[in-house]
Structures are given as C-alpha cells and as structure tokens.
Amino acid sequence: MQIFVKTLTGKTITLEVEPSDTIENVKAKIQDKEGIPPDQQRLIFAGKQLEDGRTLSDYNIQKESTLHLVLR
C-alpha cells in the first residue's frame, strides 16, 4: 500500500509499505529515499509519536495515510 510522509519543509514523500511493516522499517525506507538517518527521524500520526517496534497496523495506519516527519 502507499502512504505519504510530509516533511517540515512541506515536501511529501510517497512510500510503498505493508501494514505489517514496523515503524523502524518505514524509517529505513525514508533513509533510502531521503538520506536521513533513522535516529534523527520522528514520525507523527494523528498527533502521536510512533514507536520503532510497533507496526503500521498497530496504529491503524491505512493506505494513503499521511505521516508527519520531524527531525531531531
């Protein structure tokens, strides 16, 4: 499924993921596309910060959901 990741600069990254993918996994995909190390990434969905060990389905993230990427 496709999800979108919006950065603070207003750029939107499109990722191909599975509901069973972990947040860690998603961060690795963002690193592949954008070169941002996962340890600098914070992903936010519905106002919650997403934890590395959880999966997209844990957070009920469905196709075409938009996550927000904050760098630390």
Score class of each variant (00 low, 15 high):
Lys63Glu: 08
Ile30Lys: 00
Ile3Tyr: 01
Val17Pro: 01
Ile13Val: 13
Lys33Val: 09
Glu18Phe: 13
Glu64Pro: 03
Ile36Gln: 03
Glu64Trp: 04
Leu43Arg: 00
Asn60Asp: 08
Thr12Asp: 10
Glu16Gln: 11
Leu56Ser: 01
Ile3Ser: 00
Pro38Thr: 09
Asn25Phe: 12
Asp32Ile: 08
Leu8Cys: 03
Glu34Thr: 09
Arg42Thr: 15
Lys63Phe: 11
Asp32Met: 06
Leu71Asn: 06
Leu8Ser: 12
Glu51Trp: 03
Thr9Cys: 03
Val17Met: 07
Phe45Cys: 02
Ile30Thr: 01
Lys11Gly: 04
Met1Arg: 03
Gln2Leu: 12
Ile61Met: 04
Val26Ala: 04
Glu18His: 06
Leu15Glu: 00
Thr9His: 14
Asn60Tyr: 11
Lys6Asp: 08
Leu50Tyr: 01
Asn60Arg: 13
Asp21Pro: 00
His68Tyr: 04
Gln62Trp: 14
Gly47Thr: 12
Lys6Tyr: 08
Thr55Val: 08
Gln49Asp: 14
Ala46Cys: 02
Ile30His: 00
Gly35Ser: 07
Gly35His: 08
Arg72Glu: 15
Lys11Gln: 14
Ser57Trp: 13
Ile44His: 15
Gln49Phe: 14
Gly53Pro: 10
Leu69Tyr: 02
Asp58Gly: 05
Gln49Ile: 06
Glu18Thr: 08
Phe4Ile: 09
Asp32Tyr: 08
Tyr59Ile: 03
Leu56Val: 07
Val17Phe: 05
Leu69Trp: 01
Glu34Gln: 11
Ile3Val: 13
Asp39Gly: 14
Ile23Thr: 12
Asn25Gln: 07
Glu51Ser: 04
Arg42Asp: 13
Ile23Gly: 03
Ser57His: 12
Ser65Trp: 04
Val5Arg: 00
Thr12Met: 05
Thr7Gly: 15
Glu18Ser: 05
Asp21Ile: 08
Arg42Met: 14
Glu24Lys: 13
Lys6Ile: 15
Gly47Arg: 10
Thr9Met: 15
Thr55Cys: 02
Asp52Glu: 05
Glu16Arg: 13
Gln31Pro: 02
Gly47Val: 03
Gly35Arg: 09
Val17Asn: 02
Ala28Gln: 10
Glu64Gly: 06
Ile30Phe: 03
Val5Glu: 00
Gly35Asp: 07
Leu71Ser: 11
Gln40Thr: 07
Glu24Gly: 06
Val70Trp: 05
Ala28Trp: 10
Arg54Ala: 14
Thr66Val: 10
Gln62Asp: 14
Ser20Trp: 10
Thr14Tyr: 05
Lys27Met: 06
Lys27Asn: 02
Thr55Ser: 13
Pro38Leu: 13
Pro38Arg: 15
Gln2Arg: 07
Glu64Met: 06
Ile44Lys: 05
Glu51Asp: 13
Ile3Pro: 00
Ala28Gly: 07
Leu69Thr: 02
Arg54Glu: 05
Gln62Gly: 13
Thr22Ser: 13
Phe45Arg: 05
Ile23Arg: 01
Gly53Ile: 14
Arg54Ser: 12
Val70His: 06
Ile3Arg: 00
Lys11Leu: 15
Val5Ala: 05
Lys27Gln: 03
Lys6Val: 12
Thr22Glu: 11
Ile13His: 11
Gln40Glu: 12
Glu24Asp: 04
Gly10Asp: 09
Thr9Asp: 11
Gln62Phe: 11
Pro37Cys: 03
Arg42Phe: 13
Asp39His: 15
Val17Lys: 00
Asn60Pro: 05
Glu18Asn: 08
Thr14Val: 14
Asp21Gly: 04
Ala46Trp: 05
His68Ile: 03
Val70Phe: 09
Pro37Glu: 15
Thr7Arg: 07
Thr55Glu: 11
Asp58Val: 07
Asn25Leu: 11
Gln2Thr: 14
Asp32Glu: 08
Ser57Tyr: 10
Pro38Asp: 11
Gly47His: 09
Gln2Phe: 14
Lys11Pro: 12
Gln62Ser: 13
Gln40Trp: 06
Tyr59Cys: 02
Thr9Tyr: 11
Gly47Asp: 10
Glu24Met: 15
Gln31Val: 08
Lys29Phe: 04
Arg42Trp: 14
Ser65Asp: 04
Asp58Pro: 00
Glu34Ser: 07
Gly53Gln: 09
Leu8Gln: 11
Ser57Pro: 04
Phe45Leu: 10
Asn25Lys: 10
Leu71Met: 12
Leu67Asn: 01
Asp58Gln: 14
Gly47Cys: 03
Asp58Lys: 03
Ile36Cys: 02
Leu56Lys: 00
Glu24Ala: 13
Lys11Phe: 11
Ser20Leu: 10
Ser57Phe: 10
Gly47Leu: 09
Leu8Pro: 10
Thr9Lys: 06
Asp52Val: 15
Glu51Val: 08
Ile44Trp: 10
Phe45Ile: 10
Glu64Arg: 08
Ala46Val: 09
Gln31Tyr: 10
Leu15Lys: 00
Glu51Met: 10
Tyr59Glu: 07
Pro38Met: 10
Asp39Ser: 08
His68Arg: 05
Thr14Gln: 09
Glu24Ser: 08
Asn60Trp: 06
Phe45Thr: 03
Val70Asn: 04
Glu18Lys: 10
Lys11Asn: 09
Ile23Tyr: 01
Pro19Arg: 13
Thr12Ile: 07
Met1Ala: 04
Thr7Pro: 10
Met1Lys: 03
Gly10Asn: 10
Leu43Val: 04
Val5Asp: 00
